[in-house]
Design a protein around this nucleic acid. Structure first.
Lengths: 219, 219, 219, 219
DNA sequence: AATGAATGAGGCTTCATTCAT
DNA sequence: TATGAATGAAGCCTCATTCAT
């Protein structure tokens, strides 16, 4: 757990707010809000400046370009969202403890990402939206996914497939179904229907059950 | 089946291409392409005009506003994507045939929507993107969903829950998990990873199995 | 003579004002005035628009870029200034008439360019100024000079050197001294001291004499 | 000769580099380079600061205004370029030595200004460019020219006209032709065609001959 | 003396929309 | 119906200059 924390800490501090001037922090905050509300392309730098309480020129002193501003917000978010897969013990734990199962891993992952999403709804929205059009973000996503998420995830899934806990679908399919269901839940919960009266604990459990039974080896 | 066809036909003809002048058709086609490529906000009417091979003014003769153009493309798409739920026998069939199961429904639904998505990738992309910001599209979506999709879907799910085929989750949860998994598959298949060497038939079957077992009553 | 006229006519009509809308003509006129007065870099497009009595956007409908506007003004001017050297009989005349001398050629050239400069003072100023920084203009100048002016001039000078009318300086030197003196005169007359009470006819004659005696074969 | 040196020394020391801090010297140097390369209006103070390796604010500590910076560079240059005419013996020498001719004076003048131009190409470029638009520079030029250059030059020319060495053109015309030819040579040599394989010694001699014969009394 | 963050006016350019033809 | 010239508001960005440190 402490190891995980350290890594997340590092990730979060990568471009840490500590080094930012107050004005810069205000700019980032305003930009995040507005990009999430209206989309990157429909948000003007003058609006951001106004909401941040800053002269428009000040934005460009810190970010050469409007796109720079977007990237400085969105690109690290991609890494952060994939953060659990950077933790050393994400995989190790699974292998070392013979009694641990896919359910335990899933439960940890979902709870962890649920909390993260809850704290970062606007950022999540921005990434989801702009990933469609921003080349540099797609590159970052591909890099993170293929170099960090996919290999770790594959190890784990293969492990449980060998243990017979998971149906013998192609590993990629298992991963797809798992991620799709988790992300689908988070998107529904926080972006599509944030005002629905969710019973989060139960809904999380049902989602875990759904995945587990969906992937369970069929006799 | 014929009933279903009629309804879809109606849906498709709502703003049917038959009534369009060639220029108008060119405009729509160009707009769909560009909105999907670059996003609504980042596409200029002059670019659309150029690609459509018409004068800029011509666009505004047919669509009062750039947003009108978007809506005339995207709003019907929402209806079309929910089309199966408009079909009378979508539900009736389920009730009349005592031997039919959730799997059969799911299989039909997925195959049907898979084909539809395949034929309408750019439109799908546009709707997914702009739903986030366009109020009128959200309204249309909510209307369709709560008045047509949800009630029908609820009837069906309740029916199978009563028959004991589906675990006793809240109906909304079952619907959410089902839709999330289907849409997640389509998005992954056609938008996120269109170039992956998919074995569509098998992947569809696995997705169906995943949903079915995920929702299956646990002894 | 008529031949010469035709060629000049062509040159002048190359991008002739006839094809321009009234607004476009106004824009060009305003741009020429302001570039000459304040320099290209210190003239804003909004000032040009104001003086032309046009919306700022209108400028960019006709000229993609502020620099385009400059080039569309200045580049043809380079050709026009070198126009006499495009005339077929500029050289032929010299060779065909055994009694003609360098003085006659010079006299024609100076008178002709004097009238031209007089009618195009602002354009002359713009070219002289911007030649220093605009790459594309330098290229055009080099092209015109090395492909049209220099070869013709060289033929003529060599001819008169052979006839013993001109001192045996390198041809390039003769050309340099001639052009330098003519251009120096025009620049002084029209740009540096336009308000001095010039006696143009006499000053032209003195300039011709100066060049002729300066280059005359020394016994 | 020593007298001449003293005067030039004074001129050069007017705003002498000795009194400058290293930073200030760097700023001036950077400004000269960039103004010559891109022109005054197209050079930003931040670029100058960057090339000089100082903070933006530092420039404005030494020069109240960007224009101040330009003037502090260009205005003294005007004086320096006219420096020979400040020397007492420039004229005296001519009168005292009955055997000296216009050729000797010209030769000295050209050699002297040639060396000066060679050492100050960027400054020359700046003055030539900005003279067109900067009022204060024009004033300085007019002052220097009418108060120092013109009177001295006139004395000398009148002297040689009386001696019959120079054709009886108006004195202003003689001066114009002389200066035009010299400046034309320097501009061609150092600014328009600096890369041409010049034979400087010979070209200078030819230029002197050209002027002398051009002005020589015609029998 | 030196810094560099901050400013806000203004620069060039794009854009959706209008309208006379 | 179709055009495309014209608009002017707004967008992104740059710049000379100021000021607290």
């Amino acid at each position: 757990m402490s190891e995980d924390d350290i890594i997340q800490e590092m990730l979060l501090n990568e471009d840490n707010d500590d080094q930012l001037t107050p004005k810069q922090r205000k700019i980032l905050q305003a930009a995040v809000e507005m990009f999430a509300e209206k989309g990157y392309a429909s948000t003007s730098t003058s609006e951001i400046a106004k909401r941040a309480g800053v002269a428009e020129g000040t934005i460009f002193r810190h970010y050469k370009t409007k796109k720079d501003l977007l990237y400085s917000i969105a690109v690290p978010m991609i890494t952060k969202f994939a953060a659990p897969f950077f933790a050393q013990h994400f995989v190790k734990h699974v292998f070392n403890d013979q009694y641990s199962g896919y359910d335990e891993l899933l439960r940890k992952l979902i709870h962890n990402r649920f909390e993260f999403a809850k704290e970062n709804i606007p950022l999540l929205k921005i990434v989801l939206q702009e990933m469609a059009f921003q080349h540099e973000m797609q590159e970052k996503y591909k890099e993170i996914f293929s170099e960090n998420v996919l290999p770790r995830f594959r190890e784990v899934v293969d492990h449980f497939k060998e243990k017979g806990q998971i149906e013998d679908y192609p590993t990629e399919t298992v991963i797809r179904l798992t991620i799709t269901t988790i992300v689908g839940f988070l998107v529904t919960r926080f972006i599509i229907m944030p005002d629905y009266p969710w019973d989060d604990e139960q809904e999380i459990e049902r989602t875990i059950s759904f995945i587990l039974h969906g992937l369970e080896t069929q006799s």
